[in-house]
Simulated scan of single mutants.
Amino acid sequence: MHHNLYEFYGYRVACTAPDEAQAVVTRLFGAPLAPGGTAPWPDAATVRLTVEVTGTGRETVPPPYFPPRWDTLDEVVIDTGGSTAAITPARHTIDLTLSRADLDDPIVWGRWLVEKAFLILTLRSDRHYGLHAGALSVEGRAALVTADSGVGKSTFTAWGLLHGAHFAGEDAMMRHLDDPEGRFWGYPRVGYLDPALIKSRPELAEARTAPVPARDKHRLEWPASFASRLKPAVRPRALLILTREHQEVRPVSVEAALELCRSDFSAGKQDPGVLARVEDDLREQLFGMTVLEFGLSSDLDANHARLTAVLHG
């Protein structure tokens, strides 16, 4: 068995896994933290992840976006048929059982199990919350990027990375109330992109990809050549709310932005006091940002140029 520490979405992850699962662990987390290292800050929450491999031959079935009663059960189970993740929010533990047939399927162990397990832990916690957002940084100035599904958030953030920006994630950003530096944490190792975009970029020719069932996207693991620009966290200067209803950049009030994000940060928060603390924290973060509705055009280069102007204007 291997016992190592990793960083994932701003959590310190104490992972125990057998030899045959090590390739999966490396693809998920990258290199382990240095011995004795603390990440991402000394008092960061630790998630204990245990991986087991079984020989089950059950058919793989896409799970629901959230399992039934995910926001109230003491143990939440995500079941894909052959593989499962059992999440105990109160103990910050994840027990991952992988079928040998799924070891080469990053949709199962990545998108459906581990990525979703950490989202559930965050949403169920009284010291963390999540936003449906990505993040990137252009020449040292960062933006959170949110949008309704289908608007183009993933393409917008990926295009930035492909054109020299630093990239911190494209779908979920986590905020830890105990983080002393006010950061938002993402998962920068992967993107979910239109396969036509992937095919059009020579620098992605060797990237590991997998189609997402019932979606027009592929899960892509960024090649090693991008490693220096994959950053797990940002201190955002701006919040951009992407839209295709116009092609302008319009200011948005903090209170309006809070309402737009309410379904994100309130998810899983059963205690009104916890929800009030979370809302106060996000309000405080937004008061330190420029908050804008950012109209997208069909010209990806022009959108990126406008992003640069917004962050450095």
Results as ranks from 00 to 15, higher is better:
residue 30 G to H: 12
residue 30 G to S: 09
residue 31 A to P: 08
residue 32 P to W: 03
residue 33 L to K: 04
residue 34 A to V: 12
residue 34 A to L: 11
residue 35 P to K: 07
residue 38 T to C: 10
residue 38 T to H: 09
residue 40 P to D: 07
residue 40 P to M: 11
residue 41 W to I: 05
residue 41 W to H: 15
residue 42 P to K: 01
residue 42 P to G: 06
residue 42 P to W: 03
residue 44 A to E: 10
residue 45 A to I: 12
residue 45 A to P: 08
residue 46 T to N: 04
residue 48 R to F: 05
residue 52 E to S: 15
residue 53 V to R: 11
residue 54 T to C: 05
residue 54 T to M: 02
residue 55 G to C: 09
residue 55 G to S: 12
residue 55 G to H: 11
residue 55 G to R: 13
residue 59 E to T: 13
residue 59 E to L: 14
residue 61 V to M: 14
residue 61 V to K: 13
residue 62 P to Q: 12
residue 62 P to A: 14
residue 63 P to S: 09
residue 63 P to W: 04
residue 64 P to C: 13
residue 64 P to E: 10
residue 65 Y to G: 07
residue 71 D to W: 13
residue 71 D to E: 15
residue 73 L to S: 15
residue 73 L to K: 12
residue 74 D to W: 05
residue 75 E to H: 11
residue 76 V to F: 10
residue 77 V to G: 03
residue 78 I to R: 00
residue 78 I to V: 12
residue 80 T to I: 11
residue 82 G to T: 07
residue 83 S to M: 09
residue 84 T to E: 08
residue 84 T to S: 07
residue 85 A to C: 08
residue 85 A to T: 09
residue 86 A to F: 04
residue 87 I to G: 00
residue 87 I to K: 00
residue 89 P to V: 04
residue 90 A to H: 13
residue 90 A to T: 14
residue 91 R to G: 06
residue 92 H to S: 13
residue 94 I to P: 07
residue 96 L to W: 02
residue 97 T to H: 08
residue 99 S to K: 07
residue 99 S to V: 05
residue 100 R to K: 07
residue 101 A to W: 08
residue 103 L to S: 05
residue 103 L to T: 08
residue 104 D to P: 08
residue 106 P to Q: 05
residue 111 R to F: 12
residue 112 W to Y: 11
residue 113 L to E: 00
residue 114 V to Q: 02
residue 116 K to M: 13
residue 116 K to L: 10
residue 117 A to I: 02
residue 118 F to W: 06
residue 119 L to Y: 03
residue 120 I to R: 00
residue 120 I to W: 00
residue 121 L to T: 05
residue 121 L to M: 04
residue 122 T to D: 03
residue 123 L to F: 02
residue 125 S to W: 01
residue 127 R to H: 11
residue 129 Y to D: 06
residue 131 L to R: 02
residue 131 L to N: 02
residue 133 A to Y: 01
residue 134 G to W: 00
residue 135 A to I: 01
residue 138 V to D: 01
residue 138 V to R: 05
residue 138 V to S: 00
residue 140 G to H: 08
residue 141 R to C: 01
residue 145 V to T: 08
residue 145 V to H: 09
residue 145 V to C: 06
residue 148 D to S: 13
residue 148 D to A: 15
residue 148 D to R: 14
residue 149 S to F: 04
residue 149 S to T: 14
residue 149 S to A: 15
residue 149 S to G: 15
residue 151 V to F: 06
residue 151 V to S: 10
